[in-house]
């Protein structure tokens, strides 16, 4: 019998598929925080393509974009919405700034939520985000 491939949770398959069809920027990670996918709409906001992103763990994607609060303070993983969804398994929302891959600092409103395939089976998390101008308009 051929060696069995690693197979993903159906919830992640469908989350990735939904993200791929949305015009809203979406970022999907697995239960360990590994980047699984970000969609085409997210690419200009993050300043890089998904194809060039490679395998990124939570500590990598949480620091490479230098997330800061609106006072300019650096935010650790546990204080950004996707980190909260990943670590505490709770939904979260926050406005913050990132330095995108193209060097531009952008202000984003981010909503993140955990994905449970069953009540006790955490399989990953999703962040949906919107770029805002300095007045906070989406």
């Amino acid at each position: 019998m051929p060696e069995s491939p690693r197979t993903r949770s159906l919830v992640l398959i469908l989350a990735k598929d939904l993200a791929s069809r949305l015009a809203t920027p979406v970022f999907v990670v697995d239960h360990e925080g590994m980047l699984l996918y970000f969609n085409e709409a997210a690419e200009p906001v993050l300043g890089r393509s998904y194809a060039e992103a490679g395998d990124l763990g939570a500590e990598e994607w949480a620091t490479m974009f230098e997330p800061r609060d609106l006072d300019g303070n650096l935010l650790p993983l546990q204080d950004i919405p996707l980190g909260i969804a990943l670590l505490k398994h709770k939904p979260a929302h926050r406005t913050l700034t990132i330095r995108a891959g193209d060097g531009v600092r952008r202000r984003l409103a981010i909503t993140a939520f955990p994905l449970f395939a069953h009540r006790d089976e955490f399989v990953g998390a999703v962040a949906v985000f919107w770029e805002q101008d300095r007045e906070g308009r989406g």
Partner: peptide, 13 residues
């Protein structure tokens, strides 16, 4: 990629 196709974990080989 088979890892992203529903059902391959059951049907594989």
């Amino acid at each position: 990629s088979p890892e992203w196709v529903s059902g391959t974990g059951v049907a594989w080989g």
